[in-house]
Nucleic acid binder design. Structure first.
Length: 223
DNA sequence: GGCCAGGTCAAAG
DNA sequence: CTTTGACATGGC
């Protein structure tokens, strides 16, 4: 394992992580719509559970805006059950599907190729889409240069002493201002941070043997 | 059996 | 404006 040093610069950390772990191939989804649905389903839920839910939706042929928009709630609920919170998530993804189907049909090209500000405005008007889900959609479905902040990002940044910021927008500004505004870089870096966090940053476990920072980091991200 | 996972919303303080 | 509780499954 390489040496992940405290107070390392963002780009330096990104390059070190990439050299160590390689490309993460995010977002694991075949279409933008699948990424949008997955972004909602993965809220506070392990990705392995979401994989099952997505597989069920695919098997039921529900993973297009028009199909999901017409599907009965009971069917959606049953399909996404493994991802947890299935009652509210079923309502939310159906509502999103109805919005997309009505305004764009099944081809989301026109939707995704809007300028960031109008796309962001549209996406954040959806119920069930908060800051992280919104930015995941902007970055991973639409390839806009928006840095996604999640619990892992906060933990890793805090533990590595990169910044003491806690609020979502401040953290986002920190990363975006310390990196080239490149969506592919944002994509890979965020995925690598999650990978690092998953494997070396649970609870009070140190990041690695040579970087024994044990500061307890709160999971909650302030708005 | 308890804790945690690629959060969000509404209601209350 | 900040804090709290509800939402729910599956893996370790």
């Amino acid at each position: 394992m390489r040496f992940f040093c405290l107070h390392m610069h963002s780009l330096e950390l990104c390059e070190t992580l990439y050299a160590e772990f390689g490309p993460q191939h995010w977002w694991p989804g075949e279409t933008p719509f699948e990424i949008i649905v997955g972004a909602v389903l993965t809220q506070n839920t392990a990705w392995s559970n979401v994989e099952n839910a997505i597989a069920n939706l695919k098997r039921a042929r529900l993973l297009t805006p028009t199909k999901l928009a017409r599907a009965p709630l009971s069917k959606i609920r049953a399909a996404i059950k493994p991802s947890g919170y299935y009652n509210q998530k079923a309502l939310r993804i159906k509502k999103i599907a109805q919005y997309l189907a009505k305004n764009y049909g099944d081809d989301l090209t026109r939707f995704l190729s809007q300028p960031v500000c109008s796309l962001r405005h549209e996406v954040e008007s959806w119920k069930g889409v908060g800051p992280e889900t919104r930015d995941s959609i902007l970055l991973y479905a639409a390839q806009k240069p928006v840095f996604v902040i999640d619990a892992y990002t906060v933990r890793v940044a805090g533990r590595m002493g990169m910044t003491d910021k806690r609020a979502y927008r401040e953290l986002q500004a920190f990363f975006e201002s310390s990196l080239p505004k490149n969506p592919r870089l944002f994509n890979e870096f965020h995925a690598l941070l999650v990978h690092l966090g998953k494997n070396y940053c649970r609870k009070t476990k140190p990041l690695c043997a040579s970087c024994p920072v044990k500061t307890r980091c709160r999971r909650r991200i302030r708005r």
